[in-house]
Amino acid sequence: MNRLSWFNVVSLTLGFAFLYIPMVILVIFSFNESKLVTVWAGFSTKWYGEVIRNEAFLDAAWVTLRVAFFSATIATVLGTMAAYAMMRRGAFVGRTLFSGMIYAPLVMPEVITGLSLLLLFIAIGLDRGVLTIILAHTTFAMCYVSVVVSSRLVSFDNSLEEAALDLGCTRFQAFMSVTLPIIAPAVIAGWLLAFTLSLDDLVIASFTAGPSATTLPIKIFSSVRLGVSPEINALSTIIIGIVTVGVLVASVLSKRQIAQARRDEAMADQAEG
């Protein structure tokens, strides 16, 4: 399939332009002197200064990071356990319900998840705040983690675990010393996904956050409702920058690792010949 027709070239060009031009415009206008977002009035970084001085943004960012860190971490533990249990256990009572509950949150509209969790917190008298957001985010993020980890476990060579058992490990030791280190990249990917999902989430956080805790998306949403502002552009640019750098670094690192592994294998095969 290595012949690109003009049609392919055009659709790729237009497609990626469509994906990236809005972002580029957003970034460019974060450096605009004027308060008007759509009219260029000269280069300035003053909006970045505004963002950094805006305590409400900083507080919200701090809450968001804490929530994302804790919910991603708990979700990774629970999601990995769930994926492993589903993969290794045969039939057990309530298996269908269990797998249903793992997959359902992936397709559940956020408004419903948010509403139902809020009603639960009220019913049990739990004050809304950072804790309730963490609980809510953990619940839907663990499902994503479990999907990522399961897809790795599918290709996991079962005999590695059997070898560990054969050499004297208990099941738990085999999991900790063999399975976990090998599936670690998937677990880390799951954590990163859970972390970004939590950072991103507006709807569920809006339902489960109390007046004492506001996350960055909630803050951004309420100011965006009032219209565009260069300050939000600047804040968005910072977020886009961090994410882009993070994703690029991660992909370069993993690419290098793969390349190294290929070289090693090639050398090993040569040694034999």
């Binding site: 060579d157 005999s159 590695l160 059997e162 070898a163 560990a164 054969d166 050499l167 063999v178 090998i182």
Partner: peptide
């Protein structure tokens, strides 16, 4: 009893 696996199952 120890086993040598078909896939070798090297960690």
């Amino acid at each position: 009893v120890n086993m040598m696996f078909q896939s070798y199952a090297l960690f």
